[in-house]
């Protein structure tokens, strides 16, 4: 399915859709098509890192992926449940008081494509909900998103809550958003900070491969 990989990676939206339909009509296994998209998304992520692609391409690639998932929805039942061979578990949300979600959604999509089982708690998430979800979901990594300076406080509260339930040492915490930097990272006591989604995925993959 080199042509499909290529169409997605080159942002040829109509071609990608038509090829997906063609392969489905030919009876190709949905997982194989899904793998082609995964491969294409990896190329898109790499080009983002290299400064060839930017936010428009990440968003469009995500949109192509979504369209394909819709087309394959009924055929994929049960297939995605094979979470046992996933790379790791990723718990994600935007901290309390902050309602921004574009960056967070991009992270969720890319983490999913990179083999993580993602639990997205949404926006304006209080620390208590993070710790409840952490207990139940047992993530390897907790990702905290926030565009505003008020998120520093919310992010810190999540880390404190993780300490309280004795899970801080068992997870990596990564923070992301336009305002985060080394000072914010130190204050929050996170393990890493990033200002773009692709960089965040890279950290996560590296942690799991160690």
């Amino acid at each position: 399915m080199k042509d499909l990989v290529n169409a997605v990676a080159e942002m040829m939206e109509d071609d990608a859709k038509n090829l997906t339909q063609k392969y489905l009509d030919q009876g190709a296994p949905p997982m194989e098509i899904f793998e082609a998209y995964k491969e294409a998304l990896a190329i898109v992520g790499k080009r983002f890192e290299e400064g060839i692609y930017f936010v428009p391409e990440l968003i469009l690639a995500g949109e192509m992926m979504k369209t394909a998932s819709e087309m394959m929805k009924d055929l994929m039942v049960g297939e995605k449940a094979s979470d046992s061979n996933r790379l790791g578990k990723f718990l994600l949300g935007t901290g309390e008081g902050d309602i921004h979600d574009i960056g967070k959604d991009m992270v969720a999509m890319l983490m999913d494509m990179n083999g993580f089982e993602v639990r997205d708690l949404g926006v304006d998430v209080p620390a208590q909900r993070f710790s409840d979800a952490a207990k139940e979901f047992q993530p390897d990594i907790v990702g905290l998103s926030g565009l505003l300076t008020l998120s520093f406080e919310s992010m810190k509260q999540v880390v404190d809550a993780l300490k309280e339930i004795g899970m801080r040492d068992k997870v990596k915490v990564i923070i992301g958003g336009g305002q985060v930097d080394e000072h914010a990272c130190k204050y929050v006591e996170a393990d890493a900070w990033v200002t773009d989604a692709v960089a965040g995925v890279k950290y996560a993959v590296n942690w799991m491969e160690k």
């Binding site: 300076t149 520093f152 000072h183 914010a184 204050y187």
Partner: peptide, 13 residues
């Protein structure tokens, strides 16, 4: 002056 410094840094920073 970074918002992180002004929000969670010290006057010395």
């Amino acid at each position: 002056v970074p918002m992180s410094l002004l929000t969670v840094g010290t006057p010395e920073d």
